[in-house]
């Protein structure tokens, strides 16, 4: 991809929108709302992993929440001195994705021997087992009380502390880097192999794609994303408890990705902001908010199965059907919705 290819009108608008978002938000938003936006952006990084597994590879995995937990507890143990030693927070943060890409690779080697729905069930089992340990195993995970007093991120002599705006900029940097990585993967051999597995695994196998290894690599990339975001999350919130990592929250990341559009990097960020932001924004109607939320998930799946990012395709599709009713059937090019 050369520079010339990058300078399309669409990309330029996108870049301007991103810059506007990064510049305007800290001016307008302060305090608690800033915390919500920061957490939402961190969760967008986790949903990138969902995008790689579900959007590219067609594998429904609930494991993201568990790897987020691994990352969070890793930082909590490394930087509070619970185990008798302390690693500088910045070094620990850099170690997290590397360590847990490895861990996810090993777990993936085991779980991805299973296919389709069986794999999904095995990730549910992983989430349950990990949650039980997070909630009960005192020495590593602090048991039901969780671990508090986690030091904040310090780079060199600069400490992020409770400066939410500084955190916002830092998280934005990682969201953008993560987005670039995801887009790069989508266009790489790995991305195309994953897409072939999603569309037809048998055909991919006959074409010489090592489907098993490809899926394991995707799983470990997704795990690294989730662990890294978990590490940032725990240094941002300074506390980690097991409640965050139960099965209900595991579904949240899938919903984020699906609402935004599972194959759209920007859509995922928007989806994450909506999922985390709307319930807080409408706190006044608290009782009804979750209900409204569930209903809108269903409606969205019925009317826009490709998420908000697919809204253009849906409208274009409807328009085209309206215009040429007779030529139905050859409008299957624009969308990548087949799974």
């Amino acid at each position: 991809m050369t520079l010339k290819n990058l300078a399309t009108p669409k990309n330029i608008i996108g870049i301007i929108a991103i810059i506007a978002f990064v510049v305007i938000v800290p001016q307008v938003v302060q305090g608690f709302a800033m915390t919500i936006i920061n957490v939402a952006l961190l969760f967008a990084i986790i949903s990138y992993g969902v995008s790689i597994m579900l959007g590219m590879g067609g594998q429904l995995s609930f494991a993201a929440v568990t790897f987020m937990g691994f990352g969070a507890y890793f930082i909590a143990n490394m930087s509070t001195g619970r185990l008798g030693f302390v690693i500088p927070t910045f070094l620990a943060l850099l170690l997290t994705p590397i360590v847990f890409a490895g861990v996810a690779f090993l777990i993936g080697l085991v779980l991805l021997k299973l296919k389709g729905t069986y794999f999904t069930f095995s990730t549910i089992a992983l989430v349950q087992v990990a949650f039980t340990y997070f909630n009960n195993f005192q020495p590593l995970f602090g048991g039901p009380d969780g671990i508090s007093g986690i030091p904040t991120l310090t780079i060199g002599s600069y400490s992020f502390g409770n400066d939410l705006t500084a955190w916002f900029y830092l998280i934005c940097v990682f969201v953008i880097i993560g987005g670039i990585i995801v887009e790069r993967i989508r266009r790489s051999q790995l991305g195309r192999s994953l897409a072939s597995i999603r569309d037809n695994e048998t055909a991919a196998l006959t074409l010489g794609v090592n489907t098993y290894l490809t899926k394991v690599i995707a799983f470990s990339i997704a795990g690294a994303f989730a662990a890294f975001a978990g590490a940032l999350w725990v240094m941002h919130g300074r506390f980690v408890g097991a409640e965050m990592f139960n099965f209900l929250n595991a579904t949240q990341f899938i919903i984020m990705a699906m609402i935004g559009g599972v194959n759209s990097t920007v859509g995922i960020v928007i989806g994450a902001l909506l999922v985390r932001g709307l319930p807080e924004f409408f706190r006044g109607f608290q009782g009804y908010m979750n209900l409204f939320w569930g209903v809108s998930i269903i409606l969205l799946m019925v009317f826009m199965p490709t998420g908000l990012a697919g809204i253009k395709d849906v409208i274009v599709d409807k328009f085209r059907q309206f215009r040429v009713k007779s030529r139905k059937g050859d409008d299957d090019d624009a969308t990548n919705t087949k799974a």
């Binding site: 899938i254 919903i255 699906m258 599972v262 209900l291 998930i297 269903i298 087949k338 799974a339």
Partner: peptide, 17 residues
């Protein structure tokens, strides 16, 4: 629905409702 995950997500939404 052409996308298998949509129905699963919809049942998750139904669970919330």
């Amino acid at each position: 629905a052409s996308y298998a995950a949509t129905t699963i997500i919809a049942t998750m939404g139904a669970a919330i409702v």
